[in-house]
């Protein structure tokens, strides 16, 4: 909590000293957030953004894990997709937006496809590496105990790769948020990105800073509620420093 308090203090002092509309203090930012909460624009934007984030991220996890496993295990997929994945990781996902709009029109599908593409690549790359590093002894032992095919994949290969897959999933979440916000900024369709755009248009610096703060808090909350418990559990099982 102390670093947060220090940051708030420095911010307050700076805005007081500058006394410029370009750097509103924490209180004005708080007031802007409260007023946009009251008029319903912020809650609605939050719901919109979160619904997109949730659907896009879940789809990206599913496709990413499947793509990663296939790249690691299926020779012809590795030959065709292996290098492509690395290449794709160099393309900022928002670059897909114009294409997505041409394909899907100004629709949710266009935004969603950008989020999925953005988050899928790190998940797939991490999954591929994790699956390839699963010790063959584990799978061999399981096969002599009667496991095979999809059962072997689900009960042995994926759990054995879970540490790496979780790292990819965490990375993928960041990618999903970035892709979504970028898409929402470009493509006016509700959500926090649009609130940011509106804030810029109206010269409402307090609102812009407020939305960024909200994103920061959301990132912290997801980390605390979702990723930290998973990582703690993995450390408890696999061992290692927590």
């Amino acid at each position: 909590m102390l670093p947060v308090a220090v940051a708030l203090l420095v911010w307050s002092l700076a805005s007081w000293a500058l006394a410029s509309p370009l750097l509103p203090g924490p209180t004005s930012v708080g007031a802007a957030l409260v007023s946009s909460l009251r008029d319903g624009s912020l809650p609605w934007a939050l719901v919109t953004t979160f619904a997109r984030l949730f659907v896009g991220y879940v789809l990206a996890l599913a496709f990413g894990v499947v793509a990663g496993v296939a790249t690691a295990r299926v020779a012809w997929v590795r030959a065709s997709l292996g290098r492509t994945l690395t290449g794709l990781s160099g393309v900022p996902s928002v670059c897909w937006l114009p294409l997505a709009i041409l394909w899907f029109g100004l629709s949710e599908a266009a935004i969603l496809s950008v989020v999925v593409l953005g988050a899928l690549v790190p998940v797939a790359i991490a999954t591929e590496a994790a699956v390839r590093h699963v010790p063959t002894e584990l799978e061999h032992a399981a096969r002599t105990m009667g496991a095979s095919g999809v059962g072997l994949l689900v009960t042995v290969t994926l759990p054995a790769a879970s540490v790496g897959i979780t790292a990819g999933a965490k990375l993928g979440f960041g990618f999903a948020v970035r892709a979504l916000l970028a898409a929402e900024l470009v493509f006016v369709s509700g959500g926090l990105g649009q609130v940011l755009e509106t804030g810029r248009d109206m010269g409402d610096t307090a609102l812009v800073i407020g939305v960024v703060t909200v994103l920061l808090v959301v990132g912290r909350v997801v980390e605390t509620l979702l990723f930290s418990p998973v990582e703690r559990e993995l450390v408890r099982r696999f061992g290692g420093a927590s």
Partner: peptide, 19 residues
């Protein structure tokens, strides 16, 4: 094909670390 009539034990035991 692998059979449960033939058990195999590897150098480090190959216990499943997540179980």
């Amino acid at each position: 094909a692998p059979t449960s009539r033939h058990a195999i034990v590897f150098q480090d035991g190959a216990l499943f670390p997540w179980l």
